[in-house]
Design a protein around this nucleic acid. Structure first.
Lengths: 160, 160
DNA sequence: CTTCCTGCAAAAGTTTTGCATTAAC
DNA sequence: GTTAATGCAAAACTTTTGCAGGAAG
């Protein structure tokens, strides 16, 4: 398992990051008087591994033995706790991803053919110019800005 | 424009624009072998008047006497025809707006408290810089970009 | 031991569809 | 007159909830 240097080092780093994440999630659940159960841990692991927003169906496939009702309930708890973000993607299925506070700010490629979503980051300069413009706009319109979400819609490599 | 800054001139200009819109919609429906019926015309009028994405419930209130099933069916037809755009906003209700091809490119303020959405346009310079960056990103990732959608989430004036 | 979580099944909510009738072309 | 659109009611769909049993702290 510790075989080749590059992958080994990357894996170690990822493991550390994942440990930190679990600690952070655990803390949040405690503050909300909730328990970080095996199922909830499993859900977080699934979302970490995915690196893209997942549907309930996809999560269900990746979290064997967890009934749908528990899935929905735990995802609701994790959402209230600020651990996961829930939104409805293209196709009217709810999708879930880890909150940006835990993973960092990013946007999404959305394939309009197969519906797949993948995470993507904008170049820093573009992102901050955009944020400046949004702040200015919001101020002018009397809107109190909290965050922004950008979907890039088109065809993924496989569907092109 | 004709230079007059009074309301009458504005209304005339708006009426003209709406006529053009109806003609464009009619053409699209013909090409799809569909009919531009009274109900469909009424739906388009409602969406034009709203200047923001509406839920089925809201449309239902603004289009008296149209049964929900007809609403859904006609909105589906108009979506297939490329006249309206359907998406799911915050709160898991479907929302509908006229296609950007008919109204022009814009984004949305989304109030996370009351769920209201309002249309907003970015300054041209920011918009084109963003588009350049997205094009570059998409090229690099092998993604064929068709459009982008930006939601500015926060609190509207009334909820702040 | 007390509180929260789990799992099943049944309910609630929005959206879609079957079928007889009506309107558009 | 032919074909598509309409309206009602019933179905299908994702998502939520009640309740008895089990696990966590």
């Amino acid at each position: 398992m510790t075989g080749d240097a590059d992958d080994g080092a990357e894996d170690d780093a990822e493991d550390d990051a994942e440990d930190e994440l679990h600690t952070a999630v655990g803390t949040r659940l405690e503050q909300a008087e909730g328990r970080y159960t095996r199922q909830r841990r499993a859900l977080v692991d699934v979302l970490v591994g995915a690196r893209q927003p997942l549907t309930v169906e996809e999560i269900h496939a990746l979290a064997p033995g967890v009934p749908q009702s528990s899935l929905y309930r735990n995802l609701a708890v994790l959402e209230e706790t600020g651990v996961v973000h829930r939104f409805t993607g293209h196709g009217d299925f709810a999708r879930f991803e880890l909150a940006e506070e835990l993973t960092g700010h990013h946007h999404h490629f959305v394939c309009s053919n197969c519906g797949a979503m993948t995470d993507v980051e904008l170049p820093g300069a573009v992102e901050s110019r955009l944020e400046d413009a949004l702040a200015e706009l919001s101020r002018r319109e009397g809107f109190t800005i909290a965050e922004h979400r950008l979907d890039i819609v088109g065809l993924c490599r496989s569907c092109a």
